[in-house]
Design a protein around this nucleic acid. Structure first.
Lengths: 196, 196
DNA sequence: CGGAATGATATATTATCCTGTATCGATCGT
DNA sequence: ACGATCGATACAGGATAATATATCATTCCG
């Protein structure tokens, strides 16, 4: 039904998740119901224009009508901005990418498959959430010790510790309030991006 | 009520008028009712997102959610594009501007005020509608002969001929089908823009 | 003048958005 | 294991968007 508005609703969900805002919080700030938001994001229902602007306002989004002819130019701006999107350092992106690939190379490195799933989820979030300097340092240590096992799987005890520590970092980043951003230096983009 | 969506609906009306499309034609192509379109443009009613995309598609517009932070950049692209908007030659824009100012300088140049009003309306449309090479030549001749009267008002007979001729040109441009565009050379923008 | 097209309205009927509330399963933190 | 939170769903009722026609005043063209 609502295939016409998919890109818009998907964009709404993406913006909300990037801001790490729950449907309920978005509901409280926008005036819409959590139920309503859920159905809009899933495409079950098409929002009215009024509801759309209410949600967009909370997510710091502006609704713009762009001539199709200008879409490539606009698209470039949007992409370049979302590329250096969050204030992630190049190092953080690289580390996440390396662990991600290490994880993909040998799924059998984990005795418990749920550990692999948990780790994968945590990494997906760490790909987008900024870490403080201390947190990044901790993350670097963890990643380095784990990445040492290339040919043979690491001891189970070690893996479990790693998964737990990563989840802890993830939670710290996730539950950090949107309002107090992570203090971070300005030089954001360096050499090549190592993401997968 | 719908003050939140004013800019959007206004943009819709502007886009439709630039394309010289009637509410009824837009209705036929979009699937909405002419009544519905009228109310949307006037802000009497807020359209659903589905209706909005239907109308926008016909008008060659794309609905984009832009982070507020990027709005200045996007705004620049939109403005610069609408400046060199339609495929009007610089000469056509200049001529319209000159006649426009000539008209504003001395309203008393016209014995019949309705003539002045008609002329003003025709110019408003000629400001946005492309003319063929022959039409532009005709327009240039008309404008030049009219602009010769600076200090004293032109003879009434001359004015009436001018108004009629301009209206004829206007109608030719207005009723030209959007589908067969005016063949025009590519070098569009020259020196300064002389518009008022 | 007479016909055609436009935009603005009016009314009645249908469709559906939207809210409010409540529940469910899954997940996460203590 | 427990309580808390999240997303997905269900359902009833009031609000309103949307359709379908029709009319009216203006304007433009022959």
């Amino acid at each position: 039904m609502g295939y016409k508005t998919e890109h818009i609703t998907h964009q709404l969900r993406a913006a909300r998740e990037v801001k790490n805002m729950s449907q309920r919080e978005l509901s409280a700030r926008s005036g819409l119901t959590q139920s309503h938001i859920s159905q809009i994001e899933r495409g079950t229902m098409e929002p009215g224009l009024g509801s759309l602007v209410d949600v967009a306002r909370v997510l710091d989004l502006e609704i713009v009508l762009v001539p199709k002819k200008l879409m490539p130019a606009i698209g470039n701006i949007l992409d370049s901005a979302s590329a250096m999107s969050d204030t992630l350092t190049s190092e953080q992106r690289k580390l996440v990418g390396r662990v991600d690939r290490w994880l993909a190379e040998g799924r059998d490195r984990f005795a418990i498959t749920s550990d692999a799933d948990n780790l994968k989820d945590s990494l997906a979030l760490l790909r987008h959430l900024p870490l403080s300097a201390e947190e990044l340092e901790k993350f670097r240590d963890l990643a380095m010790t784990l990445l040492r096992w290339q040919s043979e799987p690491p001891p189970a005890k070690h893996v479990s510790e790693f998964v737990h520590a990563i989840r802890s970092l993830r939670n710290a980043a996730v539950h950090r309030d949107r309002d107090d951003a992570v203090p971070r230096s300005a030089y954001a983009l360096d050499e090549e991006d190592d993401d997968a």
